[in-house]
Write a protein that binds this DNA or RNA. Structure first.
Lengths: 228, 228
DNA sequence: GGATGTGAATGCATTCACAGCA
DNA sequence: TGCTGTGAATGCATTCACATCC
């Protein structure tokens, strides 16, 4: 039993990732004033198949709070406002997440300046760095605090999410500190594989990896073209 | 036929992504002075299984240039220098890729300042922006050029890779321009799904997506803990 | 002994194809 | 007719288990 897209939860990881993309796309469509969208339109706009979109969205049927059974409307697709709300609720971004940033180097400062988080339910509430020269410098509304203040700050403000943007050599130390302070989730930009306890959610972003993948794609295509 | 990890090419996408991670890890291990590593050690350091590592690396056996049949050494694992060279060659990063950056906003400036590319075979050789106020401003060794110079620059320097770091609304236009100029690969940081011809390699990086995934992971874990 | 390389087995993600509904 | 929701079929990624080699 339990064939097809396994009605009812454990939402698989690849599905969850696409749910984020659906949400992003719906927000764009909403800004354009659209009210409904079909699985095939949504699929095409993201270069996916309509069956995959429907399959993914079917995971939302019985998710947590909503008792609603069907989310699409036969013959006319999905209502953008409904679906957006349901996605936000499922992903947990229907509330504001306060996030701390560790590392005020180039990458850290870029993240501070990056406006994209605010519109998606996240707010950077503090920046920390171990370099005394950087401490007290201001970026936008935030001024850099010493790492020694990190643990008390997390406790005092009940922070659950942190972004690690320190050099690779310091990343594990920072992760350990954050873990000990009781953090729930970590977004790691350092190019190392961190070790954290099972109860801490961890994702890595290494911008060199996709760039390398492109180099690989291009190289492979050239080889194919070459010997044809 | 062709069961198991399909000896001989078309390297699947998930495999190619992990090859990048193996390379990154090997570079770290090399810096620590190690000479060899076993599939199980490499696996553990990246939280994978040893069978997966061996399976992935077996794709390198007959790849393009190298005529070597076996890359590991029975009883003693893989030689780090050998494997590093083979990975670089396979991924296409055994040579220098000159990359142009379009967009000198917060993200673009961070990428300029980010040192990580240089050590992995990529060099940012020019920055472009359409905002006249930004043009001619210098960041590090590069000064911002007007987008009108983009196409001639690409032709003149035979650039094949570009990074898009402009607002979502401008990204498709920039992609079209780059495509028309004959670019081979695009790394897109704008939160939109771009449309490019099949012969152009495209990858997306949206830092809000992994952050949302973490929020989702944390939310789900809380629900599980809650009702247990 | 300790490791690789790989066919065979498993399990998961995606697609197909169609019943059912507006 | 147009579209969703989903069981069944496919196909791909991962793991198992073991022959093999130093």
């Amino acid at each position: 039993m339990a064939s097809g897209p396994a009605r009812r939860s454990p939402i698989p990881d690849p599905v969850a990732t696409r749910l984020s993309l659906y949400l992003r796309q719906l927000e764009t469509l909403d800004r354009r004033g659209l009210k409904t969208i079909s699985s095939s339109q949504l699929a095409e706009s993201l270069r996916l198949t309509s069956a995959l979109v429907r399959s993914d969205l079917s995971y939302l049927n019985f998710s947590s709070t909503s008792r609603t059974r069907k989310i699409g409307h036969s013959g006319m697709g999905y209502r953008i406002d409904e679906l957006t709300a349901l996605l936000r609720c499922t992903l947990g971004t229907d509330r504001l997440w306060e996030v701390v940033l560790v590392g005020a180097g180039n990458l850290g400062r870029a993240l501070l300046a990056y406006g994209g988080f605010a519109t998606r339910g996240f707010r950077l509430v503090a920046v920390f760095d171990c370099d005394p020269k950087k401490v007290a410098t201001s970026y936008g509304e935030l001024s850099v605090r010493p790492v020694t203040d990190l643990v008390p700050f997390i406790h005092e403000h009940s922070i659950s999410l942190a972004i690690i943007a320190v050099p690779a050599t310091d990343a594990q130390d920072v992760a350990d500190t954050l873990t000990a302070a009781g953090i729930d989730g970590l977004l790691n930009f350092a190019p190392v594989s961190l070790r954290v306890p099972d109860h801490v959610a961890l994702r890595d972003v290494d911008i060199s990896v996709p760039l390398e993948q492109i180099a690989f794609d291009v190289t492979r295509r050239r080889q194919i073209t070459h010997l044809s």
